[in-house]
Nucleic acid binder design. Structure first.
Lengths: 126, 126
DNA sequence: ATAGGTGTATTATATGATTAATACACAATA
DNA sequence: TATTGTGTATTAATCATATAATACACCTAT
């Protein structure tokens, strides 16, 4: 469980993001139990309250659910789970396009840049 | 001079960004005078110190230069000016690819999403 | 029953970044 | 010369975030 926190975004949101990524790629399955607040705080070297805040956020978004005295679990709602990947994607594309539109770049140049950068490290994973 | 500030990023950096965009698309030319700190602060409804900090940042990056008792001017260094567009582009692509890589998206799906989103509002500008 | 593990809630403190409030030196000009 | 407009510097205040310190209710298993 290695997360690279940046200093800009709130840690608790980065934790939420971390779980969303795991969900998006199917590494976390419906109903699967996740670490308790205190345990996660230990693993991530973070204050328990920060972990709690992250989980609270996830609970409000319907990503996890909690039964009395048990660590939270990933939701079984396929509807929500299915949307996570798309949400992350759309959001990223949105931010990107917005930030780049003000520069008036030809589409093809833009797509080339993305393709090159994105496929640059394919040898590592292949 | 309408800038839409977001709440996440420091205002002074958003101002720097604003000028970089203008430079990137050639709307600000070499040697061109830009508003004084106080004037900019007025226009953007921002504290003069925030304007000052933005200008200081730009000065350190070599984007502008300042002569005694005169408003700063855009650098005439074509080298620096030429890099601005590329810097903005590369940075945006970098952030995008990084944020999206953890989701394992096929390249073509990704490029399609970008293309669609990017060309969506072409009718507005055409 | 008691010790330890859950989640949850409240309050206080620390910290760092950002913004704000002032003040200063200088030059031009009315 | 006195006012106004430059850039610059220093210090204070603000704000969001993160952390910390506790406390509580609940359950399980020793």
């Amino acid at each position: 469980m290695n997360v690279n926190f940046n200093n800009r975004d709130p840690v608790y949101l980065q934790i939420v993001r971390y779980f969303k990524e795991k969900i998006a790629i199917g590494e976390l399955e419906p109903g699967e139990e996740i670490p308790s607040r205190r345990e996660l705080a230990n693993q991530m070297k973070v204050n328990p309250n920060t972990a709690q805040r992250a989980y609270k956020e996830m609970e409000e978004q319907g990503l996890i659910y909690t039964e009395k005295n048990h660590p939270s679990k990933i939701t079984t709602d396929q509807n929500i789970l299915g949307q996570v990947r798309n949400e992350l994607l759309v959001e990223a594309v949105d931010v990107f396009v917005t930030s780049v539109r003000s520069i008036n770049v030809p589409v093809e140049e833009l797509l080339d840049l993305v393709r090159v950068k994105y496929t640059a490290n394919d040898d590592k994973e292949a």
